[in-house]
Design a protein around this nucleic acid. Structure first.
Lengths: 229, 229
DNA sequence: AGTAAAAGATGTTATTTAACACAAAAATGC
DNA sequence: GCATTTTTGTGTTAAATAACATCTTTTACT
């Protein structure tokens, strides 16, 4: 079982924006829950009620599109806040979130967050910055996913995973082992094409595949493929 | 010539967030300029130095992608603030902006905006809201542009233009007359395909084309095409 | 351990869309 | 007003990718 104290130690202080009293308020109202691998955290259409903080684990934020095909639009890594966009624009969720792997998530009632944010400019600035960064990434992603060819999109996704989740001690094995379907949902392609193109990359010695584990062998080449489209 | 007073009358008050003194500060530092049709306002890689406010006219925010093909990621209509995302995340611009048509734009030094935002939670909240809304739209756009087929994407773009720029008094002619290339850049397709598919829509009496003017004849059908992909 | 279900792999075909080529029409510049 | 450039329109071909079918391997469950 997770102890609340362990979570608190990890809870980011929102860029030091919080006073001890504000921190206390949050801690009192916070709830902690574990999500199993592939478990849904929230769904499209849900009313956002909490600011979520990923304490440990990995999370994907995605949209279900035409014909049940999902597109992963963002990922979250520990320790990181997520799930606040919809609440801040007074909408229901337009995306869904699920755990890539077992994840511990703290939730803070959004009303409290809003109340604190309205009074604390530093806290508001924290969210301005995060949203501005996310929007820039989303814009870049739109063009990458629409204009690049399959190889470019897949190369991009591999580098995206490295950037977001990092690599193991060996310096080249991705810290996440996504299913082929997840790779497809990251890269805007069918699962068949993700499987096929990963195999081709392995044949070309750009990557080494060991089941779901991906080891990057030739990053400059992947970057070039990603750039060229 | 534009008189500064005329602009001031139109300058939105950022949701009433500004005190008279803050407003005064902004007005003193503000500059106003006219951009001609298709003139570039800022480019990818530029350092953002000003918060821009579109006083009159129409603006497209776009990214240049593979093979010089541009993708329009957002549009701005008067009176609306834009061009602040990069500044707020301490990045150079990752998009470019250009005038769809002759536009009058006021610019406020970003340093001043930042200074005010840091002290004024209501102002910060204004930007949190705008960014949150923009991010939601960007996420939706990513999936629409990647997963839908040509007809769905074009139908979506026509509805997108109606939503963002509205229609004339007749209730169905779009308030903007984009070139076929702009339609293509909105819809993630080649210009040829935009021309062809617009013609097909006209043949199917979904729209009526008069040069660049687009009149929506059957909106429910367009919505259905857009939804189905 | 044995069985069912899910995920991965691979080949084939059909569809979608880009690329290209060229002509007509419209806009622009002197 | 005429030449030049840009935009629009249309047909044809080539390339990219989805869809489908089938088989193998792995995982999950009792």
């Amino acid at each position: 079982m997770i102890k609340k104290e362990d979570v608190l130690a990890k809870l980011p202080d929102l860029d030091g924006a919080l006073s001890p009293e504000e921190r206390e308020q949050i801690i009192n109202k916070m709830q902690v829950r574990t999500y199993r691998k592939n478990e849904t955290i929230y769904q499209e259409g849900d009313i956002p009620s909490h600011l979520l903080c990923l304490i440990s684990g990995k999370v994907k934020i995605y949209k279900d599109g035409v014909g049940g095909r999902a597109q992963i639009v963002r990922v979250a890594d520990a320790v990181e806040y997520f799930g606040y966009r919809a609440a801040f624009s007074d909408e229901n969720y337009v995306t869904a979130a699920a755990a890539f792997e077992t994840s511990i998530i703290a939730s803070i009632p959004i009303g409290l967050v809003r109340q604190l944010t309205m009074r604390n400019p530093q806290l508001a600035w924290f969210f301005v910055r995060r949203l501005a960064i996310a929007l820039g990434k989303s814009d870049a992603r739109t063009v990458n996913l629409t204009q690049k060819h399959i190889r470019g999109r897949l190369a991009e996704s591999i580098l995206f995973l490295k950037e977001n989740y990092g690599v193991e001690e060996d310096g080249c094995t991705l810290n996440i082992s996504p299913s082929r379907e997840d790779m497809a949902n990251l890269s805007n392609m069918t699962t068949s094409n993700a499987i096929r193109t990963l195999s081709v990359f392995a044949q070309e010695k750009l990557i080494f595949l060991d089941g779901r584990r991906i080891k990057i062998l030739n990053e400059p080449a992947l970057q070039k493929i990603s750039r060229m489209g």
